[in-house]
Design a protein around this nucleic acid. Structure first.
Lengths: 269, 269
DNA sequence: ATATAGATCTCGTCA
DNA sequence: TGACGAGGTCTATAT
């Protein structure tokens, strides 16, 4: 049975706090407990303050927020602006609601992660819940994996004489995006970045190159390191040159490219 | 005026799709447009499918979700499980709602970022909106900055003879967590990590050390690199030793430590 | 469980 | 505006 409840209330009148009686919150408690026990997704528009203790400790003063509780007991506190939740608790937390008389305390505890979140709810503007049914997964095109795929399928984008051997493999040399050799007996290591490559990208490449020199026992001059990215930062380029690596401008693939690739494959028949 | 609307409907009966008429969605459109124009925070419990195109491209098949639209036109699509939104659009997006007859199309476009999100809403279980008022910011204790603070105030946690000079400063040597020297005329660079240090942490330290050797023109033996973290990965420790750096076990500070520090400071008087 | 690296990362900060 | 690093990062994957 899908039961739901909706209260529309005026914001608490600070001039007459006595108007908010214990009885006001009773149905909310019931609704939240009901929704929690039936694994519904719950939204609470409210005025609240928040305390967090766990990996760090945080405090958030009183303000209007949207609280979301999911069927896996994930809890999110969202402010009216911004992408990311201001506070949150991960899946598997134990959630409890306590009547404080002057408001509600939403307690959220994750035993495993040793984290606690306490939400002091001063006023509730609305509670809504619904049992959501969804098992679908996102199909995404244009991540780094697709980029290394593209380079393996189109080695000329890296270098004229590049011969790819493996892609995105956890070798003993490390996690190398595209690995191969060129016509002159050099090993080639390609590090892809979907966005402008920075210092850390160059260092990542450097680490792989050094490891392969060490493990294969080959000479430094026999290993080519290449960054493939749409752009590279000035400092990163300097470091790249200093280490004898090179940069190839490559834009990350999206559906457009994917479609072209499929057309090409179809054309092979 | 705070106006709000609440519809409780059964899930669409797939056997009789004709039962869902255009008229059913009319009040929803009005409510969404109304809420958008007054910068309310909106929640929509619905069944929908989603297309994204921008930095990457993604597709999400039909399922039950919670859509959140904030007062800054941030848009989030949440599945009933998991911490992070399955789809999202950043602040400043233009949001438009279109009646498709057989459902609604929620279009979200960010001109600046060249991103588009299209949500095809097949069925709506509930729409709620409220104007939220909140300008408070999170007070957080126990981040890396606090950790470098702690080390600067308690240099013996790093080494007996450590003399800190600066903390978290953008020097010409780079962004170094704690910088100083020891009694033997060596420069000391400390890199803090709140969690187990990995290969990238060691490389970050290595980069700072190399830069300071280059810019100061000092000998490699005169610069000490130290990782301060609660733990270090095995591979990272190997690399650390190979480069002559050292590891110091330090737990990140939280309120408990902060309080102790304040007591200590008070005790100084 | 730990380790490694990507992410439509996001967010802040400083040049 | 770009660059750089932290994040209560989160998430997926491999060992």
């Amino acid at each position: 049975m899908n039961y739901s409840l909706w209260f529309q209330r005026q914001k608490k009148n600070t001039q007459t706090p006595a108007a908010i009686s214990i009885a006001d919150f009773k149905p909310f408690i019931k609704e939240i407990q009901n929704a929690l026990s039936s694994n519904k997704t719950i939204t609470i528009f409210c005025n609240c303050s928040v305390l967090y203790s766990g990996r760090a400790e945080s405090e958030l003063e009183e303000g209007d927020r949207l609280i979301i509780i999911k069927s896996d007991n994930t809890l999110l506190v969202h402010q009216p602006e911004g992408n990311t939740p201001i506070n949150y608790m991960k899946t598997g937390s134990a959630i409890d609601i306590v009547d404080l008389g002057h408001g509600l305390l939403l307690k959220c505890q994750n035993q495993k992660l040793k984290e606690t979140l306490e939400i002091f709810i001063d006023d509730i503007y609305g509670i809504h819940s619904y049992k959501l049914d969804d098992g679908k997964k996102l199909q995404l095109v244009g991540n780094e994996r697709d980029m290394s795929d593209m380079l393996k399928d189109n080695p000329k984008m890296v270098a004229k004489d590049f011969v790819p051997l493996s892609r995105e493999e956890h070798t003993k040399f490390g996690f190398i995006d595209v690995f191969g050799h060129d016509g002159k007996g050099n090993l080639v290591i390609v590090e892809c970045k979907r966005y402008s490559a920075g210092l850390s990208a160059v260092q990542q490449l450097r680490r792989y190159v050094e490891k392969i020199i060490e493990l294969k026992g080959v000479d430094k001059s026999k290993v080519r390191g290449i960054i493939a990215a749409p752009d590279i930062a000035k400092n990163a380029e300097e470091m790249l040159q200093k280490w004898g690596f090179s940069f190839v401008k490559v834009d990350p693939p999206k559906r457009h490219e994917k479609a072209k690739k499929m057309q090409k494959q179809l054309g092979d028949f």
